[in-house]
Design a binder for these strands. Structure first.
Lengths: 321, 321
DNA sequence: ACCAAAACGGCAAGCGCTTACCAAAATGAA
DNA sequence: TTCATTTTGGTAAGCGCTTGCCGTTTTGGT
């Protein structure tokens, strides 16, 4: 494997010049730059990333920590991060914590020293722990907010409000909220917004795992609560609720209306198509990555709260009179 | 930030001993090891990954290249890789090529120098290119086979056979195959197996993008072809076909039976639940990662072909008499 | 033609760690 | 007790690159 040294020799310049020719093109005369580029090309030179990282103190690696890669929510964010990072030729270290707090701590600890910055997606760990992490390296939080730290989140409150108003307009008054993990910041945000629409009777169906099965499990509670509509923590849960409602002989939206959260692809291609609060997931990935870059020269840590949008499809309809 | 040097001084040993105490525990006496560990802990020592990598020549990073993170197929494989890699405390660099051949080439080129090995998931590039890549570093291919290289793939032929036999048993004789990307190796494998079941009239509906919309687009061709059953390239496409069939007023499975491939989560929670050929995706991720580790001491590159299983659900039924 | 300023490029010192290689210490057999 | 053998730990040489510093060349103003 050819080293920069070899390239320099081949081009008849010093290693310093070779280095500059490759990384700071205009600090070297055109002629020499060409000589170096040509030599590098001819020798098939590939920079040694570890050496670059060690010497420069920057690895050009980003760490992305998320609870579950198989969850389309996170996969989509990851895709956004990816795309943005590749634009600046940086690589993304992805770690899946399996929704496990302990694994999360461990993996963050593990990854942090090797990256230039971390993206914490829906972290389940405590605020103080997050602060500690942020103290030892650039960090942007996604889908959660921590006072004093950079974050990209969604305006879920207005999403919840829009969903509830939609349901109220359809004549629903008794609405079940099927929640997510108890440790989830965004579940807390949704809950907090539940009271903001007047004239509604909200039944809170405790925290489920934020997956299809969680919704299945909750559906019977929804039925027992005699709610005519349900707002779910996310689309996966909403889909689970719908499955089970159907299995119990109820039809959506005739008997029960269902609203999800996230707008994952599956939401639009199940039947009935799911009414849901769409979150700009890919964009969140983009923004978070961009934020990470500007962190040092930022005076105070920027907080982005991205707008959401209620997408009305076929899973919601007028309440039975 | 404390360095190994600092730790060594604090523990009253040489840097070499400190290094060994941390990475080769039993090449150092218990007493000194404790001194080092204690000092490291006290100083909050975190090894510098770049330095370790540079000095040892191993980055403890794996590269995972895949066409689309938002596709549950790949996300699931990625999850398997993740889990396995974390077991051996290695990090995974994930790169999403967006189903684009050029991006794929570029990103592989980019990532390879920084990793100890690469996992190429459903690569779309040419065989010769793959060989070239494999020549400059350990590589395992997932969901494709290249003569002479290590790979983990699925026994799709037997899956196709099982699906076709299932359909034939239900009385279907005219069956549409809705294919995937033309450049896809696994689409070619599926196609190759189509002829293996006798007495069937197979209509080939050309290659679609392997996503929901691809299936939607193909559905009308299926109808026009007067097939009573369709086998789709994957579940996403199958789901797309089903949506559109329904929109066209046909019901599944009464009018048309649909079989997918992969068994992604959505397959089981749509209605009607999708009959599909289940692939052990997470396991593929595991196996591929494990294979990568053993590559050097392998005589000839191992090729795993994992078994698949037809999961019969509600999207297939008897043909109309 | 001469000098100041600007542009360019080389030297060399690391970045923080690993790992031969070898010396010293400890162990055990004789 | 002595010598051969094994264990243990120190010395030092890098791994391949970046970058601050400074001398040299070029440029252009007069």
């Amino acid at each position: 494997m050819a080293t920069l040294q070899d390239v320099a020799v081949a081009a008849g310049v010093s290693p310093a010049t070779a280095s500059r020719a490759l990384s700071a093109p205009d600090s070297v005369s055109m002629e020499r730059r060409h000589r170096v580029l040509e030599a590098a090309d001819r020798l098939g030179y590939r920079p040694n990333r570890s050496a670059q990282a060690l010497a420069s103190g920057r690895s050009r690696h980003l760490g992305l920590i998320l609870p579950d890669l198989a969850n389309p929510f996170f996969a989509t964010v990851a895709k956004g991060v990816q795309a943005q990072a590749r634009g600046t030729r940086r690589a993304v270290l992805v770690a899946d914590t399996d929704e496990d707090v302990r694994a999360e701590r461990e993996v963050i600890e593990d990854l942090q020293p090797g990256v230039d910055g971390m993206l914490l997606c829906s972290p389940r760990i405590g605020e103080d722990e997050i602060r500690e992490i942020a103290a030892s390296g650039p960090v942007v939080i996604v889908n959660r907010e921590v006072e004093g730290l950079a974050s990209v989140s969604f305006d879920v409150a207005s999403g919840v409000r829009a969903a509830l108003e939609h349901l109220r307009a359809l004549g629903h008054t008794r609405i079940a909220y099927v929640g997510g993990p108890a440790t989830s910041w965004s579940d807390a945000r949704r809950r907090a917004a539940l009271g903001e629409v007047a004239g509604l009777d909200i039944v809170d169906i405790g925290g489920q795992r934020p997956v299809h099965q969680g919704g299945v499990a909750a559906a019977d509670l929804v039925i027992a609560a005699r709610a005519t509509a349900v707002l779910a923590y996310n689309d996966l849960v909403a889909l689970g609720v719908m499955s089970r409602l159907r299995a119990r002989g109820l039809s959506v939206p005739e008997d029960v209306s269902v609203v999800g959260f996230d707008d994952i692809p599956a939401a639009s291609y199940v039947s009935p198509a799911l009414t849901t609060v769409a979150l700009p997931l890919t964009r969140a990935g983009h923004e978070a990555t961009t934020l990470l870059d500007g962190l040092d020269d930022a005076v105070d840590p920027p907080t982005l709260r991205l707008p959401v949008e209620l997408v009305v499809r076929d899973s919601t309809g007028p309440a039975r009179p």
